[in-house]
């Protein structure tokens, strides 16, 4: 069994994940600019940096009788959860720790957002942010089970919960090609975890920003950064799970990993062009469409494994 990677990987992970998150935020800014009829200049690409400066300079804000402790746990926790979720994600062949149950580990870390997002919403003692927090839980009830089943499909095909083994099992053909539905449901789940695009009602304009309604200054910066980091962590984990990890011709494996991660992330960011899904609809779709579909996919994978073995 593999050993933990050298400790310098611990320093590399935040840089890579942070870079991906910044890329996502920049792309989001540029898409907004283009939709508004402006040109995609360098300034538009650098917009997230300027927006971060703005948040750092501004005064922080707390609401009357807010539960500051819980709110702070929620805000800071999302950043930490996103980093920890990426522990088993390999860049090229190297992960911070190729844990024996890497897939379950990712699952356990992303599910922490159930608590963390809700706590951020609850902590503000504010009707709109409270509604935002509860919306997140309502959505999570719809996407989480399909996401978990989608996560079991690659280990089923690779006979292992270790991410390194899953990458190796894709030497001939990427899992995304023969389990496309699991890949699709996984991406939908990640969009839900990061409450992004069609699944962003927890932070939507109709409730004045929902969970973000009372955040300003550094609080808001850390929370938004955590959300982009989570989106990036989800996109990055799709690469070893479904896209063959660092496999590819000519370029070094770490570069292939990075390119694939950025590509998946770009697709996720682009999903903002769709309208929102109402929680009630999502509930029916999650249980009556996504769940049976992903179970069917797992069945197919199971049969293939039997035929192969």
């Amino acid at each position: 069994m593999a050993e933990p990677a050298p400790m310098w990987t611990v320093l590399v992970l935040p840089i890579v994940l942070g870079g991906l998150a910044l890329f996502a935020a920049s792309l989001n800014g540029v898409l907004t600019a283009v939709a508004s009829g402006r040109r995609a200049t360098l300034a538009e690409w650098a917009e997230p940096l300027r927006a971060s400066a703005r948040l750092l300079v501004r005064q922080r804000r707390t609401t009357f009788r807010a539960d500051v402790v819980l709110r702070r746990v929620g805000i800071a926790g999302i950043v930490v959860a996103a980093l920890l979720a990426s522990v088993p994600t390999p860049l090229g062949g190297v992960a911070v720790a190729d844990l024996p149950v890497g897939v379950v580990w990712f699952n356990a870390m992303e599910i922490l957002l159930w608590a963390l997002v809700w706590l951020t919403g609850w902590g503000g003692n504010s009707a709109f942010s409270l509604v935002g927090g509860y919306r997140f839980l309502a959505q999570a009830l719809a996407y989480e089970l399909p996401l978990m089943f989608a996560l079991t499909a690659p280990p089923l095909a690779a006979d292992s919960l270790r991410v390194g083994a899953i990458v190796q099992a894709q030497q001939d053909v990427w899992f995304a090609l023969w389990m496309p539905l699991a890949f699709l449901v996984y991406l939908i789940g990640i969009v839900g975890v990061a409450f992004w695009g069609p699944l962003s009602p927890p932070a939507a304009a109709d409730v004045a920003g929902g969970v973000t309604a009372e955040l300003s200054g550094a609080d808001r910066l850390v929370f938004l950064a955590g959300r982009y980091l989570m989106l990036a962590a989800g996109a990055a984990f799709a690469v070893p799970l479904f896209l063959g990890g660092g496999q590819g011709p000519l370029l070094p494996a770490w570069l292939w990993s990075l390119l694939k991660m950025a590509a998946v992330l770009a697709v996720l960011v682009w999903l903002r062009r769709f309208s929102l899904v109402r929680a009630e609809r999502l509930m029916s779709w999650g249980w009556l469409v996504l769940l049976p579909v992903v179970l069917l996919q797992v069945l197919v994978v199971g049969v293939v494994v039997l035929l192969r073995g």
Partner: peptide
């Protein structure tokens, strides 16, 4: 530096 203490946005 001093944070603003305010009722929630309604």
């Amino acid at each position: 530096r001093r944070p603003l203490v305010t009722p929630p946005f309604l």
